[in-house]
Design a protein around this nucleic acid. Structure first.
Ligand SMILES: O=c1ccn([C@H]2C[C@H](O)[C@@H](COP(=O)(O)OP(=O)(O)OP(=O)(O)O)O2)c(=O)[nH]1
Ligand SMILES: [Mg+2]
Length: 580
DNA sequence: TCGCAGCCAGC
DNA sequence: GCTGGC
DNA sequence: GCGA
C-alpha cells in the first residue's frame, strides 16, 4: 500500500480487509509483490520514488507486468463486480507519463521507456505540495468558471432555500461481505509478507526530493504584477463563476445536455468515492457549465471552448454524444453503491470516509447502521431523526422557525438584529436548514455570546430547541443544533445560528448568503487579486501567505457592497448567487 | 508545474 | 493530522 | 481534470 502508514486507522482497516481476502500486505517492496495499491492522491512517478525504484532489480518485473500498480479502489471494485478488473484507466496507475508530458523527471535509470506498456490515460492526480498523506481532507466543490442557476424569480422579503453541495476526498475500499473471494484470491494471493520496512522514504525525504526537483524544473512562471500593497490589477476575472449573473437555470428536468450531464455525473461519483478531490472538483465545474448551456454541446471542438472543460472532458463529451456511453465507465463502482453512500452521508458526522468504511464493512441500510455500537452522539441523534433531517424545509416553515428565534432573542435584547440567511435569503423555495445571523451595533463578542446562551436556555426550556450538535454553548460564536416547531409538524430541523460582530456583518452576510460555490469562487477571485476573503472581512493577502490565521490588513468588513466593489464583482441579489 | 476557499470543532 | 461541517 |  502506498503510502504505507501503518499508524493510520484507515491503513489498519484496509490491510485487515485485504488480509481477509487472502492477500498479504507487505512492508517492503520486492519481487514478491503482485500489486501495489496506490492512494488516489499519488501518481506513478511519486510512487516510484517512494518505493525507491531505482533499484534496478525489480525493474524487470515491472516491465513484464507481473507487478501491478493500481489505485487502492481496485480491490473493492473487483469484489463489487465479482470479477477481476483488467487493466483499465480507472484503476491502473501509469508509472511514467506518456511522451507528451515529461512529468517530474524520474530517477536517471527509470525513465520513459516503460511508458508505452501502459494502457490508457488516466493522468495521475496531482498532489499538493505539502500534503501527502494517504487520506485527505474535507469537502469541496467547484469553483470559478461555471455558473448555473436555479431560478427563482420572485421577490419576497425573506425566504427561500437551496441546494448545497459538498465534495470530499477519498475513500477506502475493500469488500464487504463474503462473496467474491476466490477471484480476488487468485490474483492477490501471491503477495507475500516481507518483514520490515526497508525501502520507504519518509515524507520529509519525499518532500525534499520534490522540492529540489521543482526548483530545477519548474518553469519560471511569471507572477502577476502587483501594486506596492500586493494587489493585482490585471487578469481575466470574467472566467470566475461569481462574476456571472445568475440567470435562470435551464438544466431543470432535462436540458439539452442531459445525457452528457448524467454520464459525467457518474464519473464524478466514481472519483468522489475514490477520494480524488481535484478531479471531482473539475467534473463539478464542467457539469455546472453544461447545465447552463441552452443548446446541446455535441462536439469536442464546441466543448473545449467552455470554461472548465478541457480537452479530456471535451473528448468524453463527444464520445458520449456519439455512442451514448462512455467506455471509461465500464468498471467503475458497482450498482447501488453510490445510493448507499449518499444515504449514509446524510447522517450528521458521517462523511465520505466513514460512509465508505461502513460500506466496506457491509453496511447497506439505516438499520445496519443502527446496530452499530460505535456511533457518536451526533450520529445517533441524526439517525434517530433521519427522516426529518433528510427532508428539505418549505420556506414558509423556515419562516416559522426563524420568527420564533427572532422573537425570543428580542425578549432578551430588542436591539439584536436577526436575519435569516443561507438558502432562505437566496429565496429558494425550500431549505436544508435554518441559518440565522444575530448581530448588534456596539456589542462585543462577549455580549453576543451571553445573549446566545440566554437565548438557548429559553429555547430549550420552551422545548423548541432540541439538541446541540456543536458550537459549545459556553462562549461560542456559533450554535449548531436542532429545533422543532408546531407549525412545522414538530419535525426536527437543523439550525445554525451565527453571532456576528457589527463590524464584520458585511463579510458575514456574503459568507452566509452563499451559496458555497459562489463563496469559493469569490474567495478564489479575491486571492488572485491579492486579497483574502473570509467571513470576517476582506483583507490584503498576508505576505507569508499560507497559514490560516495570518491575514494582512483589513480592507473592509462591515460593508457588503464595498467588498463586492473592491473585488470588482457585481453585487447580485442573493437569488442570483446560486451557482452549480 | 502547481493550486483548486477558508474556517472551525472533536478526537 | 484526520475527518466532518458551515 | 482544468487553467494559468
Ligand atoms: O462549505 C461551505 C458551506 C456553506 N458555506 C456558506 C454558504 C452557505 O450559503 C452558508 C450556509 O450553509 P448551508 O450548509 O446551510 O447551505 P445553504 O446555502 O443554506 O443551503 P441549504 O438549503 O442546504 O441549507 O454557509 C460556505 O461558505 N462553505
Ligand atoms: Mg442552510
Amino acid at each position: 500500500m502506498v503510502p504505507s502508514r501503518p499508524s493510520s486507522k484507515l491503513y489498519q482497516i484496509k490491510s485487515k480487509k485485504y488480509d481477509e481476502y487472502g492477500a498479504r500486505v507487505t512492508s517492503s517492496f520486492d519481487k514478491s509483490v503482485s500489486h501495489v495499491l496506490i492512494d488516489p492522491e499519488w501518481d506513478g512517478s511519486r510512487t516510484l520514488k517512494y518505493l525507491h525504484i531505482s533499484a534496478g532489480d525489480i525493474r524487470p518485473e515491472i516491465d513484464k507486468g507481473t507487478i501491478h500498480f493500481v489505485r487502492d479502489s481496485w480491490p473493492s471494485a473487483c469484489i463489487e463486480n465479482k470479477q477481476l478488473i483488467p487493466e483499465s484507466p480507472d484503476y491502473t496507475v501509469q508509472l511514467y507519463s506518456p511522451a507528451p508530458s515529461p512529468e517530474t523527471t524520474p530517477e536517471p535509470e527509470v525513465s520513459q521507456k516503460l511508458v508505452q506498456t501502459v494502457i490508457s490515460p488516466e493522468k495521475p492526480p496531482k498532489l499538493k505540495k505539502r500534503d501527502i498523506s494517504t487520506s485527505s481532507n474535507t469537502s469541496l466543490s467547484p469553483e470559478p468558471d461555471t455558473p448555473k442557476q436555479t431560478a427563482i424569480d420572485d421577490l419576497n422579503p425573506v425566504e427561500a432555500s437551496g441546494a448545497n453541495t459538498s465534495i470530499e476526498n477519498k475513500a477506502e475500499k475493500k469488500a464487504q461481505d463474503g462473496s467474491g473471494n476466490d477471484e480476488l484470491d487468485s490474483v492477490i494471493q501471491e503477495a507475500e509478507l516481507q518483514e520490515h520496512a526497508a525501502r520507504f522514504l519518509s515524507d520529509d525525504e519525499i518532500e525534499h526530493a520534490l522540492q529540489t526537483q521543482r526548483k530545477k524544473y519548474s518553469a519560471p512562471y511569471s507572477r502577476p504584477k502587483r501594486t506596492s500593497d500586493g494587489r493585482v490589477l490585471k487578469g481575466n476575472w470574467d472566467t470566475f463563476l461569481c462574476m456571472k449573473a445568475g440567470e435562470d437555470n435551464i438544466a431543470k428536468p432535462d436540458g439539452p445536455n442531459a445525457l452528457v450531464i448524467n454520464i459525467l455525473s457518474l464519473m464524478l461519483h466514481h472519483y468522489e468515492a475514490e477520494g480524488d478531490q481535484w478531479r471531482t472538483l473539475a467534473y463539478r465545474k464542467a457539469i455546472a457549465t453544461l447545465k447552463k448551456q441552452t443548446v446541446p454541446v455535441r462536439t469536442a471542438a464546441q466543448a473545449v471552448k467552455l470554461p472548465g472543460i478541457g480537452s479530456r472532458l471535451a473528448d468524453k463529451i463527444e464520445e458520449i454524444n456519439k455512442t451514448g456511453d462512455l467506455k471509461r465507465l465500464k468498471y467503475t463502482q458497482g450498482e447501488g453503491k453510490f445510493e448507499v453512500l449518499e444515504l449514509l452521508k446524510r447522517i450528521y458526522g458521517v462523511g465520505n470516509k466513514t460512509a465508505n468504511k461502513w460500506y466496506s464493512e457491509g453496511i447497506r441500510t439505516l438499520d445496519d447502521v443502527r446496530e452499530r455500537k460505535d456511533l457518536t452522539a451526533n450520529q445517533q441523534t441524526s439517525l434517530d431523526h433521519y427522516e426529518d433531517f433528510a427532508e428539505r424545509i418549505p420556506r414558509d416553515n423556515v419562516t416559522k422557525h426563524f420568527e420564533r428565534v427572532r422573537d425570543a432573542v428580542h425578549e432578551i435584547d430588542p436591539e439584536i438584529e436577526a436575519t435569516a440567511m443561507g438558502s432562505y435569503r437566496r429565496l429558494q423555495p425550500d431549505c436544508g436548514d435554518i441559518d440565522i445571523i444575530l448581530t448588534k451595533r456596539n456589542a462585543s463578542r462577549h455580549d453576543l455570546t451571553v445573549t446566545l446562551a440566554k437565548l438557548l436556555d429559553v429555547l430549550f426550556e420552551q422545548g423548541f430547541a432540541k439538541y446541540t450538535f456543536g458550537g459549545i454553548e459556553a462562549n461560542s460564536m456559533r450554535w449548531l443544533g436542532a429545533s422543532a416547531h408546531p407549525d412545522d409538524g414538530n419535525k426536527w430541523r437543523r439550525m445554525d445560528i451565527l453571532l456576528v460582530p457589527w463590524e464584520e456583518r458585511g463579510a458575514a452576510f456574503i459568507y452566509y448568503t452563499g451559496n458555497d460555490i459562489f463563496n469559493r469562487s469569490m474567495r478564489l477571485l479575491a486571492q488572485k487579486k491579492g486579497y483574502r476573503l473570509n467571513e470576517k472581512g476582506l483583507f490584503l493577502a498576508p505576505h507569508d501567505r499560507k497559514s490560516a490565521g495570518a491575514v494582512g490588513p483589513l480592507v473592509c468588513g462591515e460593508d457588503e457592497e464595498k467588498i463586492f466593489e473592491t473585488l470588482g464583482v457585481p453585487n447580485r441579489p442573493p437569488h442570483k448567487r446560486i451557482i452549480g
